[in-house]
């Protein structure tokens, strides 16, 4: 167990380190002179020099990297070029807002996917199954940025149940969470279906049925808990999709989270903020995946603690 724990944590730390390096390089991917891009063409040479100096871009690259890395160790992410505020403060404002949306979306996704996947598995090859899977296929194929406006039209304008956008009142989270949640529910439902089907085929399920358990109870009592195990890992992975998708969904709904911060920063050519937002979301993603892996290991009695990550 300890060995597994240590290797898993070490590999997560390595991934974080790699992410930091790549995010650091992001600013150097800007074609031409990054300072010129940030200031706009035909900027005054003096302005350019002072920004270059402020960002440390006049130093050799390894030194820049070291300064960036040292700053991160002190949780210093620099200052926003646009608003002049400390990026750390900006992130602290935005992180809970995105996290809130993601968690509610997750609840929506599980709430939709669980019944759909279960029904589809238990009634395999019936119209119910095809209906549920067809729905899932649709859910996978509807882009967020199309579904969002349609939901606004219906939920906010025609029904008047929810605010149009922004974060105002408790119910403003509903529409963005539905948008994000359905896409994720679609993939989850498919996984739950195949996972439950697999468990249904196993010996202990046949035994349970042979013992006279009704098939509904057998599924709920025995199959589901076992089937949910592999889904846990997927959930962790899906959170990445959720956080990535949140960028678009937050833009559609003007939800003041990290994703919107990043898009605004791109439009403002405020690259240090873009870097920080990407870093922040990616690190969250790594940590969540680490936690789901550990949780999986803890839940699953069959796991062998000698291998590294699969």
């Amino acid at each position: 167990m300890t060995h597994f724990l240590v290797t898993r944590i070490l590999s997560a730390m390595l991934a974080i380190f790699g992410v930091i390096c790549l995010v650091f390089l992001l600013i150097h991917l800007i074609p031409g002179d990054p300072v010129e891009v940030m200031l706009g063409e035909s900027a005054q040479p003096t302005d350019k020099e002072s920004l270059r100096h402020a960002l440390g871009l006049d130093l050799p690259i390894h030194q820049q990297w070291w300064i960036y890395f040292k700053g991160l160790l002190h949780l210093d992410l620099g200052t926003s070029l646009f608003s002049g505020r400390a990026i750390g403060d900006l992130l602290i404002e935005r992180i809970p807002v995105t996290l809130y949306l993601s968690l509610v979306s997750l609840v929506v996704a599980i709430g939709l996917a669980l019944p759909l996947g279960l029904v589809a598995a238990v009634r395999q090859h019936t119209p119910l199954d095809y209906g549920a899977m067809g729905f899932a296929l649709f859910g996978m194929s509807i882009p967020n940025f199309w579904m969002g406006p349609l939901l606004i039209l219906v939920g906010a304008l025609w029904l008047g149940w929810f605010p149009v956008s922004g974060q105002e009142g408790w119910n403003s989270v509903v529409l963005p969470a539905l948008t994000l949640g359905t896409a994720m529910a679609a993939i989850l439902a498919r996984m739950i279906r195949s996972s439950v089907l697999e468990v249904l085929g196993e010996d202990f399920m046949r035994t349970a049925r042979a013992k006279g358990l009704s098939s509904t109870r057998a599924v709920l009592q025995h199959a589901l808990p076992n089937a949910l195990l592999p889904i846990l890992t997927l959930l962790g992975l899906q959170l990445g999709g959720l956080l990535g998708g949140a960028v678009i969904t937050e833009t559609v709904f003007a939800w003041p989270g990290l994703g919107l911060l990043m898009i605004e920063a791109i439009q403002q050519r405020d690259y240090p903020v873009v870097q920080a937002a990407v870093l922040c979301i990616s690190v969250t993603y790594i940590v969540v995946n680490l936690l789901t892996d550990l949780l999986y290991a803890w839940l699953d009695p069959r796991i062998q603690f000698t291998t590294g990550d699969g």
Binding site: L39, G40, Q267, Q268
Partner: peptide, 17 residues
Amino acid sequence: SHDWGTFYGDIKSGRFQ
């Protein structure tokens, strides 16, 4: 096209064609 603040900042400091 840029965010209003960025766009206006560019114009004010003469960064445009």
